[in-house]
Design a protein around this nucleic acid. Structure first.
Length: 343
DNA sequence: TGCGATT
């Protein structure tokens, strides 16, 4: 994460200000408690091991503190800002700036962008969006293993209205040099994937493995045969794949940084994620499921994806569910392929 | 016969 605004090196964790002689008026003394635009600070690049007490002590040496809080990630518990160590300094440099006052005008100004050319850099992404306003943060998501862009990213504008204008101007447009249009929409809140994680946990418990309506069908298959059916030829050994960095970037069907990705075709228009959990959960650890929907109608476009942790379980699921009749439809299930470079 | 992506 890059600092967007720098006030210069203002403090240092090892030799920061220690004097108590500064005479800074506190909000209470000035009666400015209702306007925190100049009394509320945001501090980035705090060390991960800093305690609330140390944080208070560091800034309490400068003036009276009305309140202070360390902001941690809800899931990991880590401090949200990432420490940076400038090479020439070898020490931690804090970034201290005025906190942006929370108000309706800057709320929900975060955009999710998909369909980006894989070659587009973060800088180019910012250049594209900067015509619509001041960008606070930007990010392009990359594959965990290869580092290659996943073609999706985020842009946070200073103001909600700037984000709205960017959607109007860029959604469905082709960036110069791009062959496909991009999708620009408001981003989801980065929480609430916890429900999915809970579902995943449920299906990963041993006594939930291979139960349900497909139990007998799944048992009829021997693993060797399943693997051959899934790939048509000899199996890839997941041990070999994980152990050989030279294979990174190779086009192994379905293999991603986080597991084995499965393409599911011929879902009905009213399908939702729960049907994929129910179909694939019985075969083992499911990381993630996704039903692809039409932007306008919100109906399923007929296909979806399932990512499973273990190769053997993914292959078993494919062998069992490919050709499976769901209502009046016959599912087609296979490892996902790269459909990006269609020649 | 159709292959996304939510920090």
């Amino acid at each position: 994460m890059e600092p967007q605004v720098s006030n210069g090196p203002t403090s240092n964790t090892t030799n920061g200000p220690s004097s108590n002689s500064r005479n800074c008026p506190s909000p209470m003394q000035t009666g400015a408690a209702t306007d925190d635009s100049k009394t509320n600070l945001i501090v980035n690049y705090l060390p991960q091991n800093m305690t609330q007490e140390e944080f208070r002590s560091l800034f309490g040496s400068i003036g009276e503190i009305e309140s202070c809080k360390l902001v941690r990630d809800k899931i990991t518990g880590k401090l949200l800002s990432v420490a940076c160590f400038p090479a020439h300094q070898g020490q931690l440099t804090l970034k201290v700036s005025y906190a942006r006052p929370s108000s309706a005008s800057i709320r929900d100004a975060n955009l999710y962008v998909s369909g980006l050319p894989k070659t587009m850099t973060q800088k180019e992404l910012e250049q594209l969006f900067s015509q619509y306003g001041r960008i606070i943060t930007s990010r392009i998501l990359v594959d965990q293993v290869t580092g290659v862009s996943r073609g999706v990213g985020f842009i946070r504008f200073d103001k909600r209205i700037e984000a709205e204008e960017a959607i109007k101007g860029l959604n469905g447009q082709k960036p110069s040099g791009a062959t496909e249009p991009i999708t620009v929409k408001f981003a989801n809140n980065p929480s609430q994937k916890t429900s999915q994680a809970l579902l995943s946990q449920l299906y990963q418990s041993p006594n939930r493995r291979y139960p349900g309506p497909l139990h007998h069908q799944a048992q009829r298959f021997r693993l060797d045969n399943l693997l051959n059916m899934a790939y048509g030829v000899k199996r890839f050994s997941p041990i070999t794949i994980d152990g050989m960095t030279s294979l990174v970037g190779m086009n192994i069907p379905g293999h991603t940084g986080t597991g084995w990705c499965i393409f599911v075709y011929n879902l009905s228009p009213d399908s939702d994620e729960s049907v994929l959990w129910q179909l694939f959960g019985p075969f083992g650890a499911v990381n993630n499921v996704k039903v692809i929907r039409d932007f306008n109608t919100n109906k399923c476009k007929g296909f979806g994806f399932v990512t499973m942790t273990n190769y053997d379980e993914a292959a078993m699921a494919i062998a069992s569910l490919n050709g499976y009749r769901l209502g009046d439809r016959v599912l087609q299930v296979s490892f996902k392929t790269n459909k990006t470079h269609k020649s």
